[in-house]
Design a protein around this nucleic acid. Structure first.
Length: 336
DNA sequence: CCCATTTGACCCTA
DNA sequence: TAGGGTCAAATGGG
């Protein structure tokens, strides 16, 4: 347990230690006259670290659950409870045992939603879109009551071929048209989302322009694509990127439409935001994704992560975090 | 020809 | 019953 630690485990430890360090910093800042933003940022960072650690733990501990590989950070305590379990089953496509309701019907889905908000550049017109690295196919658009802009409905391109049930809704924010409110439903079962699926059948042909980049693109490339195409302001993201990407991208980027990239990507709002009631909870700064039950009834308001904190430089790096070999990670209650 | 988008209609939930 | 989510035919682009 000590010696044969895998890279992942080391990363895990690093994340945890990082969280501790950040907590210390935060404590220091609480006493000092530091800005609220700085504190918020620290909180964000702490949460991010723990979330990542949990992500790793979850992956490591549930090797036998390919369908959710890399998604679930299903910690109840987690303020950003990514992938809460009630929903994780709903979507598998394979698990539609919920009172026999077929998810493909026109029924309104009541499954959890991951909300995300992305600021896009509209300088080139309103059609700025964001690319999250997945292939989406638009299947509908609706004018929503009380909303200025229509809502677009997308589903994973591989829905039919790989039974990928991921969908997303994109709607431009009323208050700030440069902000796209994106809600994700379901998780990706497709090869893009889950690298393990080789996509056995046909489909070889057209995959050339879609699935072919499925694997590769799950690397940072997707990140950059996203940044660029979305025009997301990433000027302050350097730190965050580094913090997140090392482990979320290589292997898990694809699996949730949300977890990997968006944690850092959509963070981009360093300055103002006129926070819509919705944004209030999530778009603020860093972790602007969260699960919602239908509508916002269960907005994870506990989302401490969601403060209007500009992203500032953390002023530290992983290198500065020293691993303490004696740290009792194995102690059972450590994570609780 | 294949695929993605558009769009009106349909169906379900609240 | 209104509003939201999805279907599926029509259409257009590569």
């Amino acid at each position: 347990m000590e010696k044969g630690w895998s890279l992942e485990q080391k990363t895990l430890i690093t994340e945890i230690i990082q969280g501790m360090e950040l907590a210390k910093q935060l404590r220091a800042h609480l006493n000092a006259t530091s800005s609220v933003e700085t504190r918020d940022m620290l909180v964000q960072s702490i949460l991010s670290s723990y979330e990542k650690a949990l992500l790793i733990l979850n992956r490591g501990g549930s090797m036998g659950q390919p369908q959710n590989a890399g998604i679930s950070v299903g910690v109840p305590e987690s303020p950003i409870s990514i992938n809460r379990s009630p929903g994780s089953d709903d979507f598998d496509g394979s698990v539609k045992d919920n009172q026999g309701y077929n998810e493909a019907s026109k029924k309104r889905k009541t499954t959890p939603i991951v909300a995300d908000q992305v600021r896009v550049s509209t300088e080139n017109g309103l059609e700025a879109h964001h690319d999250d690295g997945y292939s989406w196919r638009k299947y509908g658009q609706k004018d929503i009551l009380g909303a200025k802009y229509p809502r677009s409905y997308y589903r994973c391109t591989y829905r039919n071929t790989q039974n990928c049930q991921a969908t997303k809704q994109v709607q431009r924010s009323d208050e700030d048209p440069t902000v796209l409110e994106i809600k994700y439903r379901g998780t990706h079962n497709c090869a893009r989302g889950n690298q393990s699926i080789p996509s056995p059948e046909k489909r070889e042909k057209k995959q050339k322009n879609t699935n072919s980049n499925c694997q590769q693109q799950q690397s940072q490339q997707a990140l950059f694509d996203f940044h660029n195409s979305a025009g997301v302001n990433t000027e302050h993201l350097d730190t965050k990127e580094e913090m997140v990407s090392p482990f979320s991208f290589p292997s898990t980027y694809g699996c949730t439409a949300s977890v990997g990239p968006f944690i850092s990507l959509a963070t981009a709002e360093p300055t103002r935001h006129s926070v819509s009631p919705f944004q209030m909870n999530n778009f603020a700064g860093v972790q602007n994704l969260q699960y919602l039950e239908s509508d916002f009834t269960e907005i994870i308001s506990a989302n401490t992560s969601a403060t209007n904190s500009p992203i500032v430089d953390l002023g530290f790096s992983l290198d500065q975090v020293e691993l303490s070999p004696d740290f009792p990670f194995d102690s059972p209650g450590f994570f609780s």
